[in-house]
Design a protein around this nucleic acid. Sequence first.
DNA 1: TTGTGGTGT
Length: 1004
Amino acid sequence: MGKKKHRQADAGPDSYKPVFAGSKSNGGASINPDLRLIAQESDHDAASASTNGDDSSCDFRRKSHLTAINGLHTARNSSNGQGAQGWTNEDSSSVLKAAAQAGFANFKAGSSGLSPTKNASGASANPMKGKWKALERNVDTRILESRKELPIWAGRDAIVKAVRENDTVILLGETGSGKTTQIPQFLYEAGFCGAASNSNDRSQNLLIGVTQPRRVAAISLARRVAQEMGCPDPQSLSHAVLHGSAKGSMWRKSTFTNGGAETDGAASAAAHAGPSKDDALVGYSIRFDDRTGPSTRIKFMTDGFVLREMMGRGLQTLAQMIETNAGCRNLQPSLLSRYSVLIIDEAHERTLDTDLVLGLAKSIQRDRKRRRLEWLQSKNNDASTEVNGKARDEAPPELKIVVMSATLDAQKFADFFGQQSAGKIAPAPILYVQGRQHAVDICHTVDSCEDWADAALRTILQVHLENPPGDVLVFMTGQEEIEKLRSQLESYGKELKAWHETKLEGAPAEDVNGAGNPNKRRRISKQPPDDMLVLPMYAALGSDASMAVFQPTPPRTRKIVLATNIAETSVTIPGIKYVIDSGLSKVKKYSHATGVEILESEPISRSSAMQRAGRAGRDGPGTCFHLYTKHAFEGLAESPTPDILKVDLANACLQLCAVGRNPMSFDWLDAPAGDDIAQTMVRLMQLGAIILEKAGESQEAPAISPLGAKMAMLPLSPSFARVLLAAGQVSPTVARQARDLVAILSADRGMFFEPNDSERKEQASLARASLAHRSGDHATFLSVLYQFIAISEQAVKFAKTPKQGREEVRAWCEKHFIHYRTMSNIFAIRQQLKRICKQRGIVCDDEDGSSLHRKRDGSTAGSSSQDFNNDDDGDNGDGQDKAFFAGAGAATADGMFVSRPGQQAAMRANWQTLQDESYEQLRKALLPARTHQCAYRNPEGPGYKRGSDIVKIHPSSVLAHRQPDVIVFEEVVLTSQLFVRCVSAIEASWLSEAIAGVRQIVAV
DNA sequence: TTGTGGTGT
């Protein structure tokens, strides 16, 4: 599509046309692609005025910059009087027809009658009827009213009923249906956490879990639902409030896997606890931030978090196994016994974690069902009321699963969760909930664009000059493209007013409003054009710089947001009325055979295109301009490739092995190629994580080794975990260095900031050179971290307020072109690893009690950091900042630095010490996990030999010019050439030793 | 002498 060549022959000045011309045919139904009503009504003809009217064609030919026109013209609705020809009508109705044919129950706002679900026959009445009112009492009536207006409200009884009657329910819910906020409440109110009236019921402690692919979504949904339920804001609740004081420990025991007696005790404890704790029914759990307590009943979390919870029981077994030092394959995932319902939201996004959660949840559900049946049978055979001296209580509950999706992938989920019924497998029922969004006009180009960036530029200007106010969102591929377009737009922006004046002067009066020659007609308002406010939006920009996008647009200004697909799912930008879609996005691909990564621009899928278009209809009716033909759209894949099919599988496979699942035979929603899994398993074997049986011997999971068990317990990629464990064998000092290094390498981006302008580029490379360590990038990163810690520790000691301390540290970062935010992320990971290392017996030389340094000045530093935190001046620094400064204090406790108050000389001495440290042992510890990530200098020419490939050291490496004989590196990327990144010098003899070690592992 | 789409434990 975007790349397709297009003949440009007759793009002479007179055939010069904007990308989108023409207008929608009158009265054509314009449908938001995200809004798929069963019976679509054209309810917004007036809205089409945005693009309605004349054959507006804005003539840009006098703008010399805009010469590259491809003869593109009328986009849509060029067919005669057949209504809108855009794909919206056809595709959305076909989605709906399919939904209707499939018998999806459909809920519409205001409809009282509810269609029965497929499997719902002769069900009993909802026992919660009549209880709704009681629950409405404590909540602001306005909130309740707004809940009632949501499309999903009408379906609440039917949803509850469907969940009661089926193991799994699939919910096809559109944007704006309210599914994620309402369904957990419906299920809670219906008693899925235990009936409130029966305080002896231990199932009172059951949870409804709601998983999300993203952290921010988990937090904001939890806050919203808490508000709707009249509960305290989970983000405002401290650990102390959530867990109460001394009685908290008793509460923590009161899961239903323990005896009922304890639960009763806990329940009475609850009666005496403070109200805020008891009211905290809604919480969230994400990495680094757990806002749940004993009274939490609805828990929002990331998929990754629940995945860790699923590993819980396996990990306990693993810990025992490590003690006996034996391989183990009889592991089980946790049964998620505290959850009565698991709601897996945004399943259509198909992230790696979501896919694993779906597969494991299915097997957990079956295990729990079996367990419940066994319990019921034993109850029938044995009428006694006591088991092992304890009172018998209720049967262990089943796990209900609700999968929420926004696309027709729903059918795939329904089949996946098929249920045995009358001798055959019946798919899980699908409930369909209408969304509530505004209509969006859809436009396509008639011909393919040769240069989508140029087409985007022209379309933006056209929209700006011809259309009523409303912000523009442009979906682009990456930072570079965005910054280029931004500078182009800014230079046009300056000329727009002058251009407008010449237009007005040159045009006959009657032409001004487009009444003249049809070929020359254009809509030129007498008003000068508004200003354009061009704002970039991509992940690397950081949250501070992205804030501008969310500010209200100033008067007489049009906001033009240039975004990557971060704006497709992760953030919602208010005020967008026009979307321009390049039809492309960058996708990272991984080769299992070679370990090479590529980042490529690729056509998006139809569902992504619809999702992008939908962004124009959040606040009101809008228009989407796709910079490709309708034909190209139709040729797109239906949905994006699931992550599981394009990423490194090492982590996923190790996690599966750790819960006793064989990756080769796992119940994948989309199974990766057998060869890819096999390659991955061989790598895991080389890492010493698993013990492979002879081929084809067994369907059981490959045995996980004690080493693999330890690796699986760390929140790190297997390769980083292996480095940490290897280092732990060497010495506490090397373990500490490795722990901090893998924290750096696990951070979400590099620590060095790359400016765009050439002048600052020069400064940045100088700053970097001053921080470089001669042995390579690993040691450079590590010594930067340690210098950063020293600076932070100084700030902790001498800054008057935390805010001032942060400013000082920020200033140091800016001076050295280092991302403060990344350092803070590294810090949080480092703190988590510290805790885990301590738990798991990986001794680092800065852990409490493991180092003589602590005696020296630990108490002083500890209290100073404590004071620092207590002295918080109300600056709303986030939790990470606090952890970060606490961590800086702890670093002092490490005794890693000898800096004294205000003594810059001491700082310099520290730095010198860091530079003198060779990190030889650390570099050796990298190798067991990197025997395939080493290269020798090519004797026949430039570059390095890695197998049969010639690779080059990436110019961003400190070793780019030093060219040591043998190197180890973290990754291979294919861009203009094959580059290796994050490189350090090693010696050939170290590598031989490491290879011998791996041979030994594999031979066992 | 180069270039990094987006998530997450």
